[in-house]
Design a protein around this nucleic acid. Sequence first.
DNA 1: TTAGTGTAAATTGTTTACATAGCGCGCATG
DNA 2: CATGCGCGCTATGTAAACAATTTACACTAA
Lengths: 229, 229
Amino acid sequence: MDNSTSSQTAQNDLQVLRTSSLTGALVRELEHLILTGELKPGERLNEIQLSARFGTSRGPLREATRTLEAKGLVDAIRNRGVFVRSISSEEALEIYDIRAALFGLAGRLLTDMITDAMLVRLNEFLNQMDEIAQQRDFDRYYPLNLQFHDFLIKSTNNKTLAREYKSLVNKLHLCRARGLVQAGGLAVSNHEHREMVDALASGNRERAQEAFFRHVERSKQRFTTTLAK
Amino acid sequence: MDNSTSSQTAQNDLQVLRTSSLTGALVRELEHLILTGELKPGERLNEIQLSARFGTSRGPLREATRTLEAKGLVDAIRNRGVFVRSISSEEALEIYDIRAALFGLAGRLLTDMITDAMLVRLNEFLNQMDEIAQQRDFDRYYPLNLQFHDFLIKSTNNKTLAREYKSLVNKLHLCRARGLVQAGGLAVSNHEHREMVDALASGNRERAQEAFFRHVERSKQRFTTTLAK
DNA sequence: TTAGTGTAAATTGTTTACATAGCGCGCATG
DNA sequence: CATGCGCGCTATGTAAACAATTTACACTAA
């Protein structure tokens, strides 16, 4: 047996336990399972099964599922169990609108604090995405698109906004009717991105807010049109 | 003893237990204690003490506090305890911006669905508030103001929006530096309300969104100015 | 054949008990 | 008198046992 390795992992475990409780770790694990789709919408979270899987007792696991319930990732029904939440199309539309409002806020806030360095970085994003879009390389475009949006949201320095926005995006993943949406808007989307950056550069708050807002609204549109089929 | 009454309460209890677990009831109780200020920001939630108070064991109470933690009403520190969250002024400002964005969304959504009946109801609100404002009767103005905002938010029929908005307003209550803010803007505020309703009546989406957005931003302004003293 | 009922297994809700981590207080010592 | 160390208390973290409810399935009777 390797002494140094075992003591190191033990120390890692300790470090983990220092900052986060077992419950906290379970929340992250379950959230991961849900968002990656290993636990699908509508599926039940069996307490015994899951606690055995993670090597804990039911107590911490129940606390974790309560947290997930408050986060809106699962539904708990008394004496029936906890189920991965399934977002209806109607609710997805509601969420799109709220996401649009928050993203619009990001645009408005950024207008007043934009720097040349940020504009340079944003244009790098745009050029790179243009390039990839022309190659129709969706597998590379999608994560870059996420990075771009993430960069914008985080640049506002409004941590509450970042948290709420992320939470909304997560919830949209629980909508069964989603998935094929992004494929269509590839080059289209990047044109919208340019509009957003131009609006930021113009220094016009309302224009930026509107550009950011509409960007999300248009992806809502694409969602509804794919839904109609 | 009144038979019909006792059987009715028994049925009520049954109904309550049907939909909500003990944990759910605890969440509501604790939320109430926190929002009414009986449990003040920074104060610790003693598990044993509280579970004894409500006649439950620690398990359900811990689940309840996890829910409150996810809702952002308390902070949990491992091996230290759970504390009522204290919102800093900086975070309050962040929340104001997000509230503004959501309220702006409400204005935008309402513009496309406003009816004559709703405009009539809104004008009733305005007149009543004007009247009370002239009497400088703050005790009656404040709840009516809440009702007015609540009516607007709920009229959008976006339940997710209503939930998120309420959650934000709740969190603002946890800011110590708050409280004296509303007193100043009384007649001022109602003038802003008229602007909002006028914008709705105009049918201009962007204008309504901007009017609603700015209404919250101005109350943020009032917050910062009172903060400066 | 089908509807209804009773029973057993599985699962969740709750309580109790035990292990462990912080925190304060007192005592000894420089 | 100040400071550091150790002991004990209190509260939290976790696990296991107990209680209650749901669900599935087989059996009975119309």
